[in-house]
């Protein structure tokens, strides 16, 4: 897969995040029209996202970016690789 080299160990796909979680985008690992569409709408490496909610059937997902909310289907969110922000309770986790 493209752009794998840029992802670090903590990177997960956007789909894995829970509602309320925040993350910063690491890479978009897809090309073609989908990639263009999400880039054009401001989903680019470095941007911060927050999961706002999921539709009643758990798909699509709504995410907040700087100043606006986007919705994506789960299979589209799969291509967006993010690094979750360490949330408050995780600070106390004994991590290696």
């Amino acid at each position: 897969m493209l752009a794998d080299a840029m992802t670090s160990s903590r990177s997960v796909s956007l789909r894995r995040l829970r509602v309320g979680e925040k993350a910063s985008i690491v890479s978009i690992s897809v090309g073609g029209e989908l990639a263009r569409r999400i880039r054009d709408m401001g989903v680019v490496p470095g941007a911060t996202v927050e999961i706002v909610g999921r539709a009643p059937l758990k798909d699509p997902v709504a995410i907040r970016l700087q100043g606006f909310i986007l919705t994506l289907r789960n299979n589209e969110a799969d291509w967006i690789i993010v690094e979750p922000e360490i949330s408050d309770h995780k600070i106390c986790d004994p991590s290696p």
């Binding site: 569409r37 999400i38 606006f68 289907r73 589209e76």
Partner: peptide, 11 residues
Amino acid sequence: EPTPFVMELPP
């Protein structure tokens, strides 16, 4: 293929 869904939820 389905058209990408990516859509804005306007306020």
